[in-house]
Amino acid sequence: MSKRIEVNNLDVYYDKFKAVEDVSMIIEPRSVTAFIGPSGCGKSTFLRTLNRMHEVIPKAWVDGEVLLDGNNLYGPGVDPVLVRSQVGMVFQRPNPFPTMSIRENVLAGITLKNKRISKSEADGIVEKSLRGANLWEEVKDRLDLPGSGLSGGQQQRLCIARAIAVQPDVLLMDEPCSALDPISTLAIEDLIDELKQDYTIVIVTHNMQQAGRVSDKTAFFNIAGTGKPGKLIEYDATKTIFENPSEQATEDYVSGRFG
């Protein structure tokens, strides 16, 4: 598990509108990379191109390359569904399937792939995934109860368990703590630190302190104005971005002068 992502000259479009322009970057395996920048600068849009979720929106498309260990995710004949099993996504708001139990939520991705597994194998996946999301001890006695009955922080960890159950190589997280209280946020941040031992993790966050705490590298995105495409301004070690950025716009943003 855990793979290197290489993005080359990527432009992202909604029909004829260019939302993100000419992004190139390398994301190393077993690391946490944070995307920061003001609202509307394209960071979440760009994140969604890394597992082809962007294409779910009608008339959305990309030009350029996204390579996962050298394999172009946008190459001819590549199945987007397969890409999404390799590159998992955790969304801004916890979204367990409301009609499913905790156990069924964890197994949802496996069920979706029509993969036949024994009960003992399923039990093993459920326990391993929930342990991986630091949730097992809290829910092991109520696996058959609805996932929607958990607290917000627990629901988000359930969504992480669901994402890792299908054994992806990469985990994308789009503001995973924005709807959570400070204690739940800390639990998710601790979990991210543990998960990077096995996964390549990319997180979008508006929380500067969070980016500083959880990430190894940080990418700052910005936009020149309404109707202009978002651009990658600077990408470096997180410590460098926050303490000694090379671009004035980066310094202005991380110091709170704008954004």
Rank of each mutant, 00 (worst) to 15 (best):
K228W: 02
V32S: 01
T238A: 01
L145I: 05
E104M: 05
D190R: 15
G152P: 01
P94W: 00
D22K: 14
D252S: 14
D181C: 05
I241R: 00
Q167S: 15
G77Y: 02
P146W: 02
L186A: 15
A34L: 08
L135Y: 02
G212E: 13
R257V: 12
I36W: 00
Q248E: 15
G153P: 00
F221N: 02
T111H: 14
K16A: 14
T226M: 11
G124Q: 14
R142M: 13
V202H: 02
S44F: 08
I203W: 00
D193T: 11
G75W: 06
E251F: 13
G147C: 07
E138N: 09
E121F: 00
D174I: 03
R103D: 03
D198V: 10
S85G: 08
V214I: 15
G147E: 03
V12G: 04
S44R: 08
F220C: 11
L171P: 03
Q92N: 13
F17D: 14
L68N: 10
N71P: 03
L143S: 07
S85V: 06
M173E: 08
L158Q: 03
P96E: 11
T238E: 01
K196P: 03
Y253M: 12
I57S: 10
Y199W: 07
V81R: 01
G64E: 09
D252L: 13
R103F: 01
C41K: 08
R257I: 11
R4A: 06
I192N: 05
I160Y: 05
K115A: 11
W136E: 08
A34Y: 00
I223A: 08
A34T: 13
E104I: 10
L180P: 02
P29Y: 07
F46K: 05
S24A: 11
V254L: 12
R131V: 12
S255N: 13
K43H: 12
V83L: 05
K196T: 10
C41S: 15
I36P: 01
D11M: 11
K59S: 12
F258D: 08
K140G: 04
K231A: 05
C41Y: 01
I201R: 01
V62M: 04
L195Y: 05
Q86K: 14
S151Q: 02
I160T: 10
V56H: 00
K228S: 10
E104T: 09
L67A: 06
I160H: 02
T45A: 12
V7Q: 04
D190K: 14
L107G: 08
Y74I: 05
G227A: 10
A179W: 00
V204Q: 02
I5G: 13
P96M: 13
L195H: 05
Q92L: 12
A187C: 06
L171N: 07
T205A: 04
M173D: 09
H206W: 06
D198R: 15
A133M: 06
K59W: 03
L186W: 07
C159I: 04
Q210I: 07
V126N: 13
E137P: 09
